[in-house]
């Protein structure tokens, strides 16, 4: 599509941020907390893998990396991302949110789509969702592909900020 080239000329503000393919970024303006504090045993006990969690301050969740959307769950609450280095990340928006069956989730991406860190994945109707769910959002390393991934200290983060180190 030629429109790709057009976009470059008309300085449309890009949502994505420039990071290397190995880096992981904050999925929103949020408070980053330890996975152990998440009120869901499967995540808190790291049964799904290591990672971090976010108390979201806004209603759009962004891709945490450059990569491919290997899995987009139809209900919009979970996203599987594969990075170029083979690391697999799961973004799980909220706790038990599968029960909403998509209500309150506006999915902005498609399965197998390539994304850059900072590209929007989903828009949330926070008012509706927060009435019924704990919207703590988990970023889980479901497959570290034998790499050691460490995160920055917990606390306030800005969207697109590098959180891996």
């Amino acid at each position: 599509m030629l429109s790709i080239f057009k976009k470059k000329e008309t300085a449309v503000p890009k949502a994505s941020v420039h990071v290397s393919d190995d880096e992981i970024t904050a999925i929103a303006d949020a408070v980053m907390i330890p996975l152990e504090e998440v009120k869901d045993d499967a995540f808190a006990q790291k049964m799904m893998g290591d990672g971090v969690a976010f108390e979201l301050k806004e209603d759009v969740v962004l891709s945490p990396c450059n990569g491919t959307l290997s899995a987009v769950f139809p209900t919009g609450h979970a996203y599987g991302l594969t990075m170029k280095n083979g690391v697999e990340l799961l973004v799980h928006v909220g706790i038990n949110t599968v029960s909403s069956k998509g209500d309150g989730f506006k999915v902005l991406v498609e399965q197998d789509q390539k994304v850059q860190a900072g590209d929007p994945l989903v828009k949330l109707d926070m008012k509706k969702l927060k009435a019924n769910y704990d919207m703590t959002t988990m970023l889980i390393i479901t497959d570290p592909n034998e790499k050691e991934i460490r995160f920055i200290d917990y606390g306030e983060v800005e969207k697109g900020q590098k959180i891996s180190r």
């Binding site: 869901d40 499967a42 049964m47 799904m48 893998g49 769950f73 209900t75 609450h77 979970a78 799961l90 799980h92 599968v98 889980i140 479901t142």
Partner: peptide, 9 residues
């Protein structure tokens, strides 16, 4: 869904 799939794996 995601959680049972993860636990199965």
């Amino acid at each position: 869904h995601a959680r049972p799939a993860g636990l199965f794996v």
